[in-house]
Design a protein around this nucleic acid. Structure first.
Length: 179
DNA sequence: CATATGATGGACT
DNA sequence: GTCCATCATATGG
């Protein structure tokens, strides 16, 4: 079952928690790659020292777009995929950090790895996940509510005092286990 | 145009 | 744990 448009309306940290256990589907040619989201991070506006929304530019504008907009951001020769959250005008987004492959066998335990595995690149930037025929998110009704672990975000030198990284407890596909 | 800077990943100790 | 190749962006001249 595909998720509703209002799924992304809450605060980024609430949406980040709700996304755990959801299934991202990537259609490539006639194949549908399915993978469960097992790790996310929440990013906010100017008040968040780690957020790219502090640098006024295209990324901030994209984060202010309606919830469900796809944001693709390049760093260290990797593409990282985010989903914009909140209402238009509010800069916030959720970074997908790790996936558990369900019907394929590619390493997705890291934000750069999962975009390679699912063949996600800059061409997805600013697209709406609800309008796309080749990528969408489903809820998995047969999957029990995951046990969520909270941690500090990874690779961030200046983090918020709150823990804004969330992952499914004991899941082997989480990118890092420490912290 | 030049340069600095990572929301990384993989190799290595 | 540490080191570092590598490149999309942001920013300044």
């Amino acid at each position: 079952m595909k998720i509703e448009k209002n799924f992304f309306k809450g605060n980024a940290d609430d949406v980040a928690r709700k996304m755990l256990g959801k299934v991202i589907v990537r259609k490539i040619a006639d194949k549908e790659l399915r993978a469960r989201i097992v790790e996310t991070e929440a990013y906010f506006d100017d008040g968040d020292p780690a957020s790219r929304a502090r640098q006024n530019g295209d990324l901030k504008k994209t984060m202010e777009m309606p919830g469900g907009t796809i944001l693709v951001y390049g760093v260290h020769s990797n593409w990282l995929i985010n989903f914009v959250t909140g209402n238009p005008g509010e800069a916030s987004a959720v970074l997908i950090r790790a996936l558990e492959p369900l019907n394929f066998d590619l390493k997705c335990s890291g934000p750069g790895l999962l975009t390679r595995g699912l063949e996600i690149g800059k061409e997805f930037h600013k697209r709406c996940v609800f309008d796309s025929e080749d990528i969408w998110i489903e809820s998995d009704t047969g999957y029990a509510e995951p046990e969520i672990v909270e941690a500090f975000r990874i690779g961030v030198s200046n983090d918020l005092p709150e823990k804004m990284r969330f992952y499914i407890k004991d899941n082997p596909h989480v990118s890092r286990k420490e912290k």
